Simulated scan of single mutants.
Amino acid sequence: MGTASGMLAAARASLGMTGRPNTITRDYAARHGGEFLRAAWCDMAVTYWARQSGNRAAVLPGGDRAYTVWHAQDFQKIGRWHTGTTANVDRARPGDIVFFDWGASNSVGAIDHVGVVEKVLGGGRLQTIEGNTGDAVKRRVRSASVIAGYGRPAYGSGDGGEPAPPKPGTPAPRWPGRYITQPPVMVGDDVRQWQARMRERGWHITVDGAYGPRSEEVCRAFQEEKGLEVDGIVGPQTWREAWESPIT
């Protein structure tokens, strides 16, 4: 069974994805038909992150979703729906699935969009990760005025979606002495070691020893998460943080 932190790690790994078709819409279309390749993909993204992180049962109680209204109704049916009042928004938790109505109502039937809560900012505001926002995966800050409500997945780390407690870091192995970047694609045991560590931290990444576009995408997302310079290059600080910072 998955966790809220795993769901967020999967969402962060997609930050920066743009356009369609993309990895998310292709994954959904492979199961549900080619018409989804270029369709609106905000809820396909939530479906993809849930599947990638082992959270399918918790996040998708009614199965895969591309239509936000049905997804919100799934949470209503199992009693895990919270209407988007300011007070309720301030009680949201990281990993909650948040639904939006650009018409500023709390009507489930009027829902237009969906994302994942990353941080609760107070004052009726949330920081989210959303797919298909400007045809990309981006962080947004949203207020209760456009939040119709949110569903609370029953994550495995505790009822109600509490994030798993951070795991302590470990001493970093010696930095290999070269800056890992691309293009051209760099290969080597140091790349494989770094990829394996990113996978241990919950990122969806292939451990093949080749630092290509996907590895750089994960590196940039990890750097942003840790407040480092976001350049997509595994230098001494990024290497050290991969091991020594707590895993959340």
Rank of each mutant, 00 (worst) to 15 (best):
A92R: 03
P184D: 11
E244H: 11
V218M: 07
R51A: 12
R26Q: 13
K119N: 12
W49C: 13
G54I: 11
S215H: 06
E229F: 06
T238C: 12
T238G: 12
Q195P: 12
Y155H: 12
E35T: 10
H71A: 14
A9P: 05
G160I: 00
K167N: 10
I97D: 03
Y155G: 10
H32M: 05
G62W: 04
I180P: 15
A13L: 09
A29T: 09
D101T: 00
A87F: 08
E130A: 10
W239H: 01
G160M: 07
W239M: 02
A92H: 01
Y48K: 09
G115S: 09
I78C: 02
K226E: 11
T3K: 05
Y211N: 03
T83R: 14
V116C: 08
R80E: 02
P176T: 00
Q223F: 00
T23N: 06
K138F: 05
V141Y: 08
H32G: 12
I111G: 02
H204D: 14
I147D: 02
A196H: 05
M1F: 06
G209K: 13
E130P: 04
A57N: 06
I24P: 07
D74C: 08
M186T: 14
Q76S: 08
R80K: 14
K226D: 04
Y67C: 09
E130W: 06
G34W: 01
W81I: 03
Y155T: 07
H113D: 11
E217I: 03
R31M: 10
R192I: 02
P246E: 04
V185R: 15
A164S: 14
R38D: 10
A50Y: 07
S245G: 01
D231G: 08
G134C: 06
V146Y: 14
S215K: 04
K167C: 00
N22I: 01
I233L: 15
T68S: 15
K119T: 03
T86N: 04
G151L: 10
F100H: 04
N88C: 05
W70T: 08
G227V: 10
G115A: 14
A92Q: 03
A66S: 14
L121W: 08
N106V: 04
V116D: 05
G160R: 06
Q127T: 06
I78M: 09
S143K: 02
P246H: 11
A40I: 07
W194H: 09
G149M: 08
V187D: 10
W41E: 13
L37V: 03
A144S: 12
A29F: 06
A11M: 10
T248N: 10
Q73V: 00
R142N: 12
E162Y: 13
L37Q: 08
G227E: 13
R139T: 02
C42G: 01
T3L: 03
D190T: 09
G169A: 12
L228G: 10
R152P: 12
V207H: 07
